[in-house]
């Protein structure tokens, strides 16, 4: 027993001295980390900042839980017409995936590290299964998927976005971004990776909560919990509006 403890202690000391990297202490702050969705919501301005006790490069990844997503796929029919020809499934993919850094990823981080931490598009899609198309077309459809998501402002890869300043023996980072209104309510994580010599030397994760509030929340609850009532209300309001405007115009026309 005593030998085992001693052995573990020696291995621990060995790892500490000759291990892959001395870990950095990284702090992070997302402001605001709660985004309420009200009637006039049109996205939000986010500020992500913090520091590390070493001089290093930074990558920030914002994403949510990965899921299975089935989309419609357009293709050429009879060599002339473009139309929906079938479905395509990507799994697992997050709804939102944003990558920000202070330098191009490949310049600061080793490919294997990118893959290990899912940093960047290439790493994210390394493990994604694509169903519904031949394997030979996998790359083409992954590119299309990224284009589709970027068009919705849900995926982003922006290098040179983070400002880094030296601060004593460490460094401070800061960047602002517009949180897109297209990102649906949910829980997202922002993870900051401190990078030195092609390796991740420290991380810090914060949660961003996006939520419908007030009347918007009530309307959604009604639509999902009492759909029949919701349908009837929608119809009654439409008829009242239509008949109301019809009558107002009609009475004006008579004068």
């Amino acid at each position: 027993m005593r030998y085992t403890t001693l052995l573990a202690g020696i291995i621990g000391l060995f790892l500490l001295l000759w291990g892959p990297k001395a870990l950095a202490m990284v702090t992070c702050e997302v402001s605001p980390n709660y985004i309420p969705i009200h009637f006039f919501y049109n996205g939000a301005e986010l500020k992500i900042s913090g520091h590390a006790d070493q001089v290093c490069d930074y990558v920030v990844i914002i994403k949510d839980e990965a899921e299975k997503l089935t989309l419609r796929r357009k293709g050429k029919v009879k060599g002339l017409f473009w139309m929906n020809v079938g479905e395509i499934t990507f799994e697992p993919v997050p709804k939102v995936f944003m990558v920000f850094s202070n330098k191009p990823l490949d310049e600061i981080l080793d490919k294997s590290e990118q893959e290990q931490y899912d940093i960047g598009y290439a790493a994210l899609f390394h493990e994604v299964h694509v169903e519904g198309v031949p394997q030979s077309e996998r790359e083409k459809w992954i590119k299309e998927f990224i284009k589709f998501k970027e068009n919705l402002k849900l995926y982003r890869e922006k290098f040179n976005a983070i400002k880094v300043e030296k601060e004593g023996s460490g460094s401070r980072y800061l960047f602002d971004m517009h949180w897109p209104y297209q990102a649906v309510p949910g829980v997202y994580t922002a993870t900051v990776y401190a990078i030195q010599n092609d390796r991740v030397i420290g991380t810090c994760t914060k949660v961003i909560r996006v939520e419908k509030v007030g009347l918007l929340k009530k309307i959604t609850q009604l639509a999902f919990e009492k759909p029949a009532l919701y349908g009837i209300i929608s119809i009654v309001i439409a008829i009242i509006a239509g008949v109301g405007v019809g009558l107002v115009f009609g009475s004006k026309g008579k004068h």
Partner: peptide, 23 residues
């Protein structure tokens, strides 16, 4: 009217606020 009811009931796809703006 029939389509609105069925869509709201079965698919939860009627956006009441969007409909008001449109109407």
């Amino acid at each position: 009217t029939e389509v609105t009811f069925l869509q709201a009931y079965a698919n939860h796809t009627v956006d009441f606020i969007l409909a008001i703006l449109l109407l």
